[in-house]
């Protein structure tokens, strides 16, 4: 491993992690993908990685953790999270890394950074500022698709979601739409930003509700009557 004075430990399984690793690789930085678990503690990394970190730290390298939590005993580590509040305002992990490496973010990374900081609004606002407001939704959709793919959601699951949405049925006098998924990847529904109040039924009796809170009590009452094992989760 070439000594650049920095070692980056990356954890996570989303678009942010992928783009971070890409950026670091492009700059020939020492980067280790340590775990798919977002927010993992330094202490829970594999012993071999912990030993490597300690050794590099003793050699004088700065240790940065992306998607990490806590500290590692005896090592000065710098945790970079998805969003950080600084005196210069909110910064995403991509912003911080680009400043540390003194590299300019690409246009795509700029939009991903906005998404990390402010979600859908961040992307659309940036598109407006760049005078491409008409393309805001398309860019947002693209980022969300890639994020879901990075999280391991397959194209088959995406297709099943589309089919399930087409076959949705109504309850509570048409005020709530019921969607039955054959998987539990609720992000495939959330990202589609449907207007309805949605009751999403997943395998293993996992249930989600998206929409106006006033329908939750009515639904919970209905579930209580049907099965005690069914639990309603509001997103």
């Amino acid at each position: 491993m070439e000594n650049k004075g920095r070692v980056w430990i990356c954890c996570g399984n989303d678009l942010e992690t992928n783009e971070t690793i890409k950026m670091l690789d492009k700059q020939d930085e020492n980067c280790i993908f340590a775990s798919r678990v977002q927010g993992i503690s330094w202490r829970n990394l594999r012993p071999a990685i912990q030993n490597l970190i300690r050794r590099k730290s003793k050699e004088g390298s700065k240790i940065y953790g992306i998607g990490m939590s806590d500290r590692l005993l005896g090592v000065d580590t710098y945790n970079i999270t998805s969003t950080m509040d600084t005196e210069n305002g909110k910064l995403s992990s991509l912003d911080v890394i680009s400043e540390l490496l003194d590299v300019k973010l690409s246009l795509d990374q700029l939009f991903i950074s906005s998404y990390l900081k402010e979600g859908k609004n961040g992307v659309c606002n940036l598109a407006e500022k760049l005078e491409i407001g008409d393309s805001g939704n398309a860019i947002l959709e693209n980022i969300q698709i890639r994020d879901r793919q990075a999280k391991g959601i397959t194209i088959t699951q995406e297709a099943e979601t589309v089919r399930a949405i087409q076959n949705k049925r109504q309850m509570l006098d048409g005020n709530v739409s019921v969607i039955k998924l054959s998987h539990n990847k609720i992000e495939t529904i959330i990202d589609r930003n449907l207007d309805d109040n949605l009751l999403v039924l997943c395998p293993n009796e996992e249930t989600f509700f998206l929409g106006n809170e006033k329908y939750i009590k009515r639904l919970e009452h209905k579930f209580d009557n049907e099965s005690k094992s069914k639990r309603l989760r509001n997103i």
Partner: peptide, 25 residues
């Protein structure tokens, strides 16, 4: 300079994704 190419790439990838989903269904 990057904007036009970026939007074109985004639209193309989105269309490709939708086509894959439609194909499966």
């Amino acid at each position: 300079k990057d904007i036009k190419d970026y939007i074109s790439e985004v639209n193309s990838k989105n269309a490709g994704f939708e086509a894959q989903v439609d194909n499966i269904n």
